[in-house]
Design a protein around this nucleic acid. Structure first.
Length: 199
DNA sequence: TTGCCGATTACCT
DNA sequence: GGTAATCGGCAAC
């Protein structure tokens, strides 16, 4: 049970619940048969049509955001600032284009290979940001739209129980000041006192 | 077609 | 604290 890959049904639920329950789980990208992975320590929920911070706000449907309109349980990967990728898991169903952004990982398997992908002095800097973790795990646009039940990219359950309420910090999302009142909503979730959370 | 800006990061003072 | 890098989306022209 601890090493189970989350099935599609896990993702086709309330987005905030998925964002919270992803904390502590292991994100795995298999590259040339090698597992590059980290524990998810920070997430953000993006709530679709009525969320001004969400790429699908108001039903916007462009080439970039198309993957958000897939069924829950697919990857949404996009390029930001012309140079960094962001990795999201799509949630709910095709009429609710919502997603969870993975913002930081605690490095887990094959850290040496990850450090070749993204040279840093200290492990704590390897994947403590959404663009950084994509570089470390070699995640890019090729994975956009991929199903999350393997064999290339998936999330594994690491423990029988999800984190307790008291172990999770909820705060405003990063970098969405343009979203007005929605920028103030507590839709960023991180593991309390975890040193691998982004700055 | 042009111009501005972004779910970021690294490097500067 | 500030800013450059670099490109796709989108509104304005």
């Amino acid at each position: 049970m601890p090493e189970m890959i989350f099935p599609t049904s896990f993702y086709r639920r309330d987005t905030i619940t998925v964002a919270r329950q992803l904390l502590g789980q292991r994100l795995v990208h298999v590259v040339n048969g090698q597992r590059l992975s980290g524990r998810i320590v920070e997430t953000e929920a993006y709530l679709g049509l009525n969320d001004r911070a969400c790429h699908s706000f108001g039903g916007r449907r462009t080439t970039r955001v198309e993957s958000m309109y897939l069924e829950g349980g697919h990857a949404y990967v996009y390029l930001i600032y012309g140079m960094h990728y962001c990795f999201n898991v799509v949630t709910r169903d095709t009429s609710h284009p919502e997603a969870v952004l993975i913002r930081a990982l605690e490095p887990d398997e094959n850290i040496e290979a990850q450090r070749r992908n993204r040279p840093v002095r200290r492990d704590v800097d390897l994947s403590n940001g959404p663009g950084k973790l994509c570089r470390a795990l070699d995640v890019d646009k090729r994975l956009d739209g991929s199903p999350l039940h393997g064999p290339d990219i998936f999330v594994e359950r690491t423990a029988r129980n999800f984190l307790r309420e008291s172990e999770i910090i909820a705060s405003p999302r990063i970098g969405v000041d343009y979203a007005g009142a929605d920028a103030l909503r507590l839709l960023r979730f991180s593991i309390r006192n975890n040193p691998y959370v982004s700055r």
